[in-house]
């Protein structure tokens, strides 16, 4: 029973992993949730979900570990305004990102590109997470190891045998 739950959860998780990376590719339509008005911004403002999606994927060139969205460095501000320009030209997420990759190289993206040598960075963890459970299943879970003890250890049958023998001896006396 528990084995099945485990298997289902693992299978489900892998399926979901695929689904999520697929949804990463396609653009989610800009939600209408945003009600904030930003007076400084033009037609595309900073709280547009679509804009945030794109800006989150681009690194701030001058800071460490941050996306342009989270950064106020002058370089990031430039990139953000470029993103807005590109969006106004009607490009979708993929096209905007390609535009930046063409100009700055794949370095500008916060994830390694999924091609060539860099594919390894994706393939290895995914293979690890998928094949690992199978390996454990085959090597550990399905295997009941019984080691021959050659009667060295005082385990329960031996103790029982000894007590039996003792009682027999007592009765004999």
């Amino acid at each position: 029973m528990i084995r099945w739950i485990f298997a289902i959860v693992l299978g489900f998780s892998n399926a979901w992993l695929g689904a999520q990376s697929a949804s990463e590719m396609t653009l989610t339509p800009a939600a209408t949730e945003d009600t904030l008005k930003n007076p400084e911004a033009g037609p595309v403002h900073d709280y547009d979900l679509k804009f945030r999606e794109i800006a989150k994927e681009l690194r701030c060139p001058t800071c460490t570990g941050l996306s342009v969205l989270e950064s106020d460095a002058s370089f990031s501000l430039q990139i953000k305004s470029q993103v807005k320009e590109q969006m106004l030209m009607g490009k979708d997420k993929e096209q905007v990102l390609t535009y930046f990759v063409d100009r700055y190289g794949p370095w500008i993206l916060r994830e390694p590109p999924k091609q060539g040598f860099n594919l390894l960075a994706w393939a290895v963890p995914i293979a690890l997470l998928c094949l690992g459970p199978i390996a454990i299943w085959l090597l550990v879970w399905k295997r009941n190891v019984t080691v021959s003890t050659h009667g060295v250890r005082a385990n329960e049958p031996i103790i029982a045998e000894m007590q039996e023998r003792l009682q027999q001896l007592r009765k004999g006396n």
């Binding site: 990376s21 690194r59 190289g105 916060r110 994830e111 060539g116 860099n118």
Partner: peptide, 24 residues
């Protein structure tokens, strides 16, 4: 370590930041 290794092997600079880790 991937950015260092990748740059050494392919001469192409790449970035590995939060989205990568948040994926796994």
């Amino acid at each position: 370590v991937f950015p260092i290794v990748s740059e050494a092997l392919t001469q192409q600079r790449i970035t590995v930041q939060a989205p990568y880790f948040n994926m796994f």
